[in-house]
Design a protein around this nucleic acid. Structure first.
Length: 318
DNA sequence: CATGAGCGG
């Protein structure tokens, strides 16, 4: 979901200029929010819009005792999240200030180029437990980032540990164009998942420098027949405020084995670019996504209540 | 209109 910053707040200046320095969060409140009920957590859910965003003072690297204990066990439990599409001004303090309210964040680190010291556009956020990280992943992902016209793009940090996520079977991807500017990964995924259960994930391609959508994306299926069907059935269906244009996805890999003709597909009415009124499921997803695009809190509601469908974030392919 | 790149210490 792309939204203008509250009051047009300018990006906050960075307080720390120390490159490649992990910032640790000093515990200021009892850690329990991930145990809260849905309603309780929702009350503190809206990230305080930083009108004149004041970065909290960050102490020198500091580890809480339970963090050391957990690390010593070497349990191998992944409790860090990868976060991408970061703007250069989004430093460790910015990330910590966002997730501090969860009471479960341990540290944040923005990856910078070793030579230039410039941010690489991604980072890592460590939490006290995998459960805490998962809660953050499910409740924040896809929501607008504070003071930024872009959405959170997070995933499990797994590559660094060399731990492969569960090996998923074959994947079948489609290209989706004509996306409205506010369509997020989650929104796109839900639009298709509401119709095709085998949907494994979706990704909206964004401009790295601006964070804005490029107006197209991809949806990944686990079932080939559903992929085939979706290319005709979902063509012209609405996602947010725009009708989608669906086509075959060119292979992302170097092999040009999957070269499909770039022909536009037609929906079941043979009327590309328009909603098929007979497609009930498509209308449902249209309504669903429309509501999501208007209410960030509702987005959170749905996200939370459908925790099972958020497992695809574990896949590193999207 | 268009065919994604984003894993450290």
């Amino acid at each position: 979901m792309q939204q203008p910053p509250p009051g047009g707040v300018a990006p906050p200046p960075s307080l720390t200029n120390d490159p490649s320095q992990t910032q640790y969060y000093q515990q200021q409140q009892p850690l329990q929010p991930w145990m809260m009920t849905h309603q309780q957590q929702q009350a503190s859910q809206p990230v305080p819009p930083p009108a004149g965003w004041n970065p909290p003072p960050v102490p020198p690297p500091y580890q809480m005792h339970w963090y050391s204990d957990s690390a010593a066990t070497g349990s191998g439990e992944i409790r860090s999240l990868w976060i991408g599409d970061l703007q250069p001004w989004m430093d460790e303090n910015y990330l910590l200030s966002i997730f501090a309210q969860t009471g479960a964040v341990v540290s944040a680190k923005v990856i910078r180029n070793k030579q230039t010291g410039l941010p690489e556009g991604y980072g890592f956020i460590e939490f006290v437990s995998r459960a805490a990280a998962e809660r953050v992943l499910q409740s924040y992902n896809g929501l607008p980032m504070p003071s930024a016209e872009q959405s959170f793009r997070m995933n499990w940090a797994s590559l660094g540990y060399g731990e492969k996520r569960q090996e998923e079977g074959p994947e079948y991807t489609i290209f989706v164009g004509d996306l409205a500017a506010d369509v997020s990964d989650y929104m796109l995924q839900e639009t298709f998942k509401a119709v095709y259960p085998s949907v494994k994930g979706a990704k909206v391609v964004t401009d790295r420098t601006t964070g804005w959508s490029k107006g197209y994306g991809f949806v990944k299926f686990g079932d080939e027949s559903e992929q085939i069907r979706s290319m005709t059935e979902m063509n012209g269906m609405y996602c947010s405020t725009g009708a989608m244009r669906i086509g075959p996805a060119a292979s992302k890999k170097l092999g040009t084995d999957q070269q499909y003709p770039k022909a536009a597909y037609q929906n079941t009415q043979g009327n590309p670019g328009e909603v098929d009124p007979k497609n009930h499921s498509g209308s449902f997803s249209f309504i669903l996504v429309y509501l999501i695009s208007w209410y960030g809190q509702l987005n959170y509601e749905l996200n939370y209540s459908n925790a099972d469908i958020c497992w695809w974030f574990g896949s590193q392919c999207f």
